[in-house]
């Protein structure tokens, strides 16, 4: 029988743990398929494809497989960016409780784009914090700073808190901080070292846990149908296995503590986290901006927003 080769796109760089999990998934599938199927992972965007275009490229069949991240598809499917936002959770454990709903929504939505979802990688719930040149650990301190954020929703959120922020791509962040185009970066503190943030900022203050959209393994329908039922089963099982494995590891206080210690050794001064009051203000602003974004995204956006709100209201209580 002919060997099927599927090329799989992933935007995430190999120094991140998510990339290792993805490679493990591919390796295990390839081994079990005994030469009938080979999944070749192209890490760090090395297939030359940008995430913004991924939905339409999966739909047309130009890309066979991809590790998909719903937030990136705002241009083509704004409702997918309105599923989950920063500020939705304030405790890492909450993420695990919301996860089944998030997964359900994305699986439905991807199916509409002609994509079969086979498990995925649950992103580790990293710390999100403010990385600044000056000691900044309150919203008040932030008000006279220029802030770098990673998405439009965050600009809206900080706007409501009277903080001037702008979206700066990760590649421009280092120089922007170094030269002072911005004073602070809102970033995933746990992996700040991979982009050398400690070299251009001195202080760090924790704000909230990362509300991370899961990385789902997507296969376009044409490629999926080219697989025999046995191969489909193998891919499904391994994807599911990776989902379970990474979900168990997603919340890990020990990992976060270690990472924090590493950053302190690199010379970062750890400030007291933002006060509960500030966090509450942030959450409120984020929720307002979330509702607006969902509204702008149309009926689907509102539907997803409401489903998530229902789950969130059940947290803790």
């Amino acid at each position: 029988q002919d060997k099927v080769e599927l090329k799989m796109h992933s935007q995430i760089v190999e120094s991140r743990p998510e990339a290792e999990y993805l490679q493990e998934f591919a390796d295990r599938v390839n081994e079990r398929a005994e030469g009938e199927l080979e999944i070749r992972v192209f890490h760090a965007g090395s297939l030359g494809v940008k995430d913004t275009d991924l939905l339409r490229l999966m739909k047309s069949g130009s890309v066979d497989m991809a590790m998909m991240y719903g937030e990136y598809y705002k241009r083509d499917a704004p409702e997918l960016a309105a599923v989950y936002v920063q500020g939705a959770i304030t405790e890492p454990e909450h993420h695990l409780e919301l996860l089944p709903t998030i997964r359900e929504i994305y699986e439905e939505a991807y199916a509409d784009w002609g994509v079969t979802t086979v498990g995925g990688v649950v992103s580790p719930v990293f710390d999100v914090g403010l990385h600044c040149n000056d000691p900044v650990n309150s919203l008040e301190d932030l008000q006279d700073k220029k802030l770098r954020v990673w998405a439009g929703h965050l600009v809206d959120t900080f706007d409501k808190l009277d903080v001037a922020s702008q979206v700066i791509p990760q590649n421009d962040m280092y120089v922007a901080l170094q030269t002072g185009v911005v004073d602070c970066a809102y970033y995933l503190s746990t992996v700040a070292e991979t982009v050398s943030l400690q070299e251009v900022t001195d202080y760090e203050a924790y704000l909230h846990p990362w509300a991370a959209v899961p990385w789902m393994f997507g296969v376009n329908d044409e490629a999926w149908d080219s697989l025999s039922p046995e191969l489909q089963e193998i891919v499904r099982e391994e994807g599911e296995r990776m989902w379970e494995k990474t979900r168990e590891r997603a919340v890990d206080e020990e990992r976060e503590r270690e990472a924090r210690k590493d950053r302190e050794e690199l010379g970062i001064t750890m400030l007291e986290p933002f006060s509960d009051e500030d966090v509450a203000k942030f959450v409120e602003a984020a929720n307002e901006a979330w509702a607006e974004m969902a509204e702008d995204a149309g009926p689907k956006g509102v539907e997803y927003y409401e489903r998530m709100q229902e789950e969130i209201s059940e947290l803790d209580r």
């Binding site: 120094s15 990760q170 590649n171 280092y174 050398s196």
Partner: peptide, 18 residues
Amino acid sequence: PPSLSLLIYGATQNVSIG
């Protein structure tokens, strides 16, 4: 420096950009 290529190299391969 600054260099786009060194930045991307550093960020993707976890090497100190400085």
